[in-house]
């Protein structure tokens, strides 16, 4: 069953990622773009986890965790930059 479900899930995530990219290009404002990127990294994380199940390997867990951490830090950094033009205060 899993061998059919995982490609289906990956296709769904692909559609989701495409929608994110459309929003990323369309904008219209800066926070919109940051939000699109934020959603995009979370979706990428899900694809990586799915790929890990597909290959039956545990190795991708670290990659998923790192993407989660780095994506969050990136989003917060850009949001702070938008807030006061400065990241460290």
């Amino acid at each position: 069953m899993l061998e059919y479900v995982i490609p289906f899930c990956m296709a769904v995530m692909g559609v989701a990622a495409t929608l994110n990219v459309v929003r990323l290009i369309q904008g219209p404002s800066m926070p919109d773009r940051v939000l699109a990127l934020d959603t995009f990294y979370i979706n990428a994380l899900a694809v990586i986890v799915l790929f890990g199940i597909w290959l039956n390997t545990d190795l991708f867990f670290e990659a998923a965790l790192l993407i989660a951490v780095m994506g969050f830090v990136g989003t917060v950094a850009v949001a702070k930059h938008l807030l006061n033009g400065d990241i460290i205060d």
Binding site: C9, V12, V15, A16, A17, A36, T39, I42, N43, L50
Partner: peptide, 13 residues
């Protein structure tokens, strides 16, 4: 899970 993620992306779109 992936359907919910799709709903989130549709909402964003």
């Amino acid at each position: 899970g992936s359907l919910f993620a799709l709903v989130g992306a549709i909402g964003l779109y």
